[in-house]
């Protein structure tokens, strides 16, 4: 069984966002780029399954749509343990554009399980995985918080509003994963970092595709008014404010 993990290269979650270029873009200087947290957990789970003899996973590949500047992130995934990597050489334009690029790579080499994160922590789209499945006309399971593989049988837990369902779908399919899929992200070992340099990173050209949406500009939230401090000896005042000023209770 082969697993493909879609990796999005995102600014570290603590990055302070500063707008530049007339608010058309954000300042990338000094930004630390990381594997999108959910994709990192997805990779971790895939590697756990590969280590499990009952799961029969032979290969874990990672794919990123991005420029050469995304390669350190891809190398990090190889160091953590992915077997090989694909970089589609293109600046991501929108979710559809990205999904179309990944779909092309999957058409060239079929994978049994394709995994996307539930959202990229930069543009918060939650859309690439579903689009990819639709372009490929294969099933998708969303909000997956657990995945178990026994031979060819794959079962997953997915979140629904108000609960959880245990589901199965036939391969190939796209799993869109979230919290719970793995607990702690696996980190690269010294040996992993050494061997990452020699693992295949295949750079493939982008296919011609139009984007359907465009970011027209950014805005920072208005600074919040100062917090009203209330003495711990006068908790009643807080309740009065919530009732009469905020009108929320």
């Amino acid at each position: 069984m082969k697993i493909l993990i879609c990796l999005s290269n995102v600014p570290d979650t603590t990055t302070k966002i500063k707008l530049v270029d007339n608010n058309k873009s954000f300042d990338k200087t000094g930004v630390q780029w990381i594997i999108n947290p959910w994709d990192e957990l997805a990779l971790t789970r895939a590697l756990e399954l590969k280590d499990d003899p009952d799961a029969a996973v032979d290969k874990v590949t990672v794919i990123t749509v991005g420029g050469k500047d995304a390669e350190p992130t891809i190398r990090k995934a190889l160091a953590i343990g992915a077997d090989d990597a694909i970089r589609v050489d293109a600046e991501p334009r929108d979710a559809f554009y990205i999904a179309a690029q990944i779909a092309e790579a999957v058409r060239k080499e079929m994978y049994d399980i394709i995994v996307c994160g539930i959202e990229s922590s930069d543009y918060n789209g939650s859309t690439v995985g579903g689009m990819l499945a639709e372009i490929l006309e294969i099933p998708s399971v969303s909000a997956v918080s657990a995945m178990n593989v026994r031979g060819s049988e794959i079962s997953m837990n997915r979140d629904i509003d108000g609960g959880k369902e245990n589901v199965t779908v036939p391969v190939p399919f796209v799993a869109i994963v979230q919290k719970g899929i793995a607990i702690e992200p696996r980190i690269a070992s010294m040996r992993g970092i050494m061997t990452a340099k020699t693992k295949p990173l295949n750079v493939v050209p982008a296919v011609q595709e139009e984007s359907r949406t465009e970011y027209a500009g950014f805005e920072l939230p208005a600074p919040k008014a100062a917090c009203k401090m209330i003495s711990p000896d006068n908790v009643r005042e807080l309740v009065d404010l919530l009732k009469n000023e905020a009108k929320v209770i």
Binding site: T15, I17, N124, R212, T213, E214
Partner: peptide, 14 residues
Amino acid sequence: KVFSGKAFTNVVIK
């Protein structure tokens, strides 16, 4: 919202 709530963006659908 983008960047986990740290900014807003206007998106044009073409």
